[in-house]
């Protein structure tokens, strides 16, 4: 099954205006069937208005061992947040 029916990750947009959200995965021989299977499996109760299927093997994920310092560069840059700045009393619309 794994040989000719690879794994696909499924993303569903619940309603217009929302982003696609990962809901799970499934096996299918090609993208077209993956879409149909995803419809039958993840939207039996009208949970979505749009579906994306992505071959699981095509996803490159960050930080396999979660041990490296991949996200560290952002850790010491608090000045990227508006809360870093002191606003003098009485200033409006800032």
């Amino acid at each position: 099954m794994t040989d000719h029916s690879p794994l696909w990750e499924v993303f569903v947009r619940a309603r217009r205006g929302l982003s696609h959200t990962h809901v799970g995965s499934l096996h299918a021989p090609d993208a077209e069937l993956a879409l149909r299977n995803a419809r039958d499996l993840y939207t039996r109760r009208q949970e979505g208005v749009s579906i994306w299927v992505v071959p699981a093997g095509a996803i490159t994920a960050s930080s396999p061992d979660e041990k490296d310092a991949f996200f560290d560069p952002a850790a010491d840059k608090v000045y990227r947040h508006p809360t870093f700045y002191e606003v003098p009393d009485g200033v409006a619309h800032l």
Partner: peptide
């Protein structure tokens, strides 16, 4: 069914 689906996918590819 699984074999037919795989064959069809291969043909389309």
């Amino acid at each position: 069914v699984r074999e037919a689906a795989a064959a069809y996918a291969a043909k389309r590819a």
